[in-house]
């Protein structure tokens, strides 16, 4: 997802091609479609691919992120143009420039996207609940939910399970809260 975001974000920011504005508007319009609305058709698509109850089913729908594309585009737009001109003098093409100069510079927004995605994946519940039905492919949140029903009488076990599931995200959040909170705040400022 980071790769697709970086590539698309870079293209939208600094490469000219016909229909760019239109496609970007389309991407932003996609952002408006709530995930809940696409639940049913997505399920049918994955069922047709025979991907139900697999890792692919939980990964593929999140292969691209409009938020990620947007964040990367904003970052690349902010890069000084002189960098690109200097690279051009040295005979660099877009791909080479992106790989050796722009992408290394873009580490902060990439980290932000990665963190966001980590939190979202770890906490993912509704979609995995729908597309998995065996313990082998079930992520933690669905497992915890199933566990809480399987053993509804023991609140201490529940508390232990909740803590175990929450702890990793809590530790990661405490370590990386600057990036996460900053990213959230940045998403608000553009509104």
């Amino acid at each position: 997802m980071i790769v697709t975001s970086v590539l698309a974000g870079y293209a939208f920011a600094s490469m000219p091609f016909p229909g760019k504005r239109l496609i970007f508007a389309l991407v932003l319009a996609i952002y408006m479609v709530p995930a809940e609305v696409t639940l049913v058709p997505n399920f049918i698509i994955l069922a047709d691919l025979h991907w139900i109850d697999s890792y692919q089913a939980q990964i593929a729908p999140f292969g691209a992120s409009v938020f990620g594309i947007f964040l990367m585009r904003q970052f690349f737009l902010g890069l000084p143009n002189e960098l690109w001109e200097a690279a051009q003098l040295d005979g660099t093409g877009h791909l080479r420039f992106l790989w050796s100069i722009a992408a290394p510079l873009a580490r902060p927004p990439m980290v932000t996207i990665a963190l966001f995605h980590f939190v979202a994946s770890w906490n993912a519940f509704l979609w995995p609940l729908i597309v998995t039905n065996s313990d082998a492919y079930r992520p933690v949140q669905v497992g915890l939910e199933a566990f809480s029903y399987a053993d509804a009488t023991n609140p201490v076990l529940h508390a232990a399970g909740s803590l175990m599931v929450t702890l990793p995200i809590l530790i990661m959040f405490l370590l990386a809260q600057r990036q996460i909170v900053g990213g959230i705040a940045a998403s608000g400022i553009r509104g």
């Binding site: 697709t4 091609f17 496609i23 991407v27 996609i30 696409t38 292969g63 877009h94």
Partner: peptide, 26 residues
């Protein structure tokens, strides 16, 4: 140059079209 622009956005666009746009219209 135009072609490489399309090339770069195509992976992201592919995912978005298959898993958001088509379902939304469907």
């Amino acid at each position: 140059r135009e072609l490489s622009g399309y090339l770069l956005i195509s992976p992201a666009l592919l995912f978005l079209i298959v898993f958001v746009l088509i379902p939304a219209l469907w």
